[in-house]
């Protein structure tokens, strides 16, 4: 199957030609399949944000290409604009972009820019609000009267309302409480499953990515240094730590157990797996 979005030798340099020149992306070959849940991790400054801003044409590559369904997104202005609607990008702290008088109007900003009819816009706003779990009473409120978590969800709904085929989220759960986090991840998974959309999730939270992602890539210094299933990636704890990244807490526990000579599998990265691994140990029933 052809990837829905990919980059070829994508290179980006910030402040070109000044003393502050900085190579943010170095010949990156990235691709995401249709319907995939892809996680991106990497320490601050590794090029994650730069990469995702190329995927919907906000940044122009200094060299290399970005292809959406096999077509160069910079081939024409019209195509570039249409890609913005197909590849929805939710920035970090998206709640700071809200500006309308009501949440309803704010969510409809995207669909309106697509030139849809009022009836269609309304349908999409309700659908998007439903995805992120915002009730009808909230739609009538001013976005500035909402709580932090609600505002975050309203902002994400603003992107979902465009029904993007690829939904990219940059640390969507940063700064939320554990309950808010869980809910939001559930909403995102919901959108992924119901619409068959590709989801690309950038995060520092290893537990989140371990739970959700089918595949993940690790960026470091503007290059893709690792790519594979969470199982494959988290099995290489030392390498990750050398890149100043972590493995999920539960993986750490199991690695430590192994070091102490307990016979447990190497690639345990969710609580579920940990439970199974312990129960499956020879003679290892919890209530033995």
């Amino acid at each position: 199957m052809a990837p829905i979005i990919k980059t070829e030798q994508l290179t980006h340099i910030y402040s070109k030609g000044t003393p502050f020149e900085h190579l943010a992306l170095d010949a990156v070959d990235f691709s995401a399949e249709r319907g995939e849940f892809l996680g991106i991790i990497g320490q601050t400054g590794s090029g994650k944000s730069t990469l995702i801003q190329h995927l919907n044409g906000l940044l122009k590559p200094d060299s290399g290409r970005v292809l959406f369904e096999g077509q160069d997104i910079w081939q024409s202005k019209v195509f570039n604009n249409s890609v913005r609607f197909k590849v929805g990008l939710v920035f970090q702290y998206p709640e700071y972009q809200l500006f309308e008088e009501t949440v309803f109007k704010d969510i409809s900003f995207g669909p309106k820019n697509m030139g849809l009819k009022p009836a269609e816009i309304e349908e999409r706003v309700y659908e998007a609000a439903d995805f992120v779990g915002l009730g009808e009473d909230i739609l009538k409120k001013s976005p500035f009267d909402l709580s932090g978590g609600e505002r975050r969800r309203a902002a994400i709904a603003g992107v979902i309302a465009m029904r993007p085929e690829v939904l990219i989220l940059d640390e969507p759960t940063a700064g939320l409480d554990p309950f808010g986090r869980m809910n939001l991840m559930k909403n995102i998974r919901n959108y992924h499953e119901k619409n068959g959309a590709t989801v690309i999730l950038v995060t520092h939270n290893m537990e989140e990515i371990a739970r959700e992602a089918d595949r993940m890539i690790v960026l470091s210094d503007g290059r893709i240094s690792l790519s594979g299933t969470p199982e494959e990636i988290f099995a290489r704890a030392e390498l990750l730590e050398s890149m100043r990244l972590e493995v999920p807490d539960i993986t750490k526990v199991f690695l430590e157990l192994r070091r102490l000579g307990v016979n447990v599998p190497r690639s345990v990265y969710t609580i579920e797996q940990a439970k199974k691994a312990i129960l499956n140990r020879e003679g290892g029933s919890l209530f033995a």
Binding site: Q53, N81, R84, P94, Y96, Q97, G110, M162
Partner: peptide
């Protein structure tokens, strides 16, 4: 960038339209 990602257009239309396009910023 965030508004552009939602399809905002700051570079076309007449003066009134462009001025209005600034509100979301």
């Amino acid at each position: 960038s965030a508004q552009k990602a939602r399809g905002a257009d700051f570079s076309s239309g007449n003066i009134v339209r462009r001025a209005k396009a600034l509100i979301p910023i």
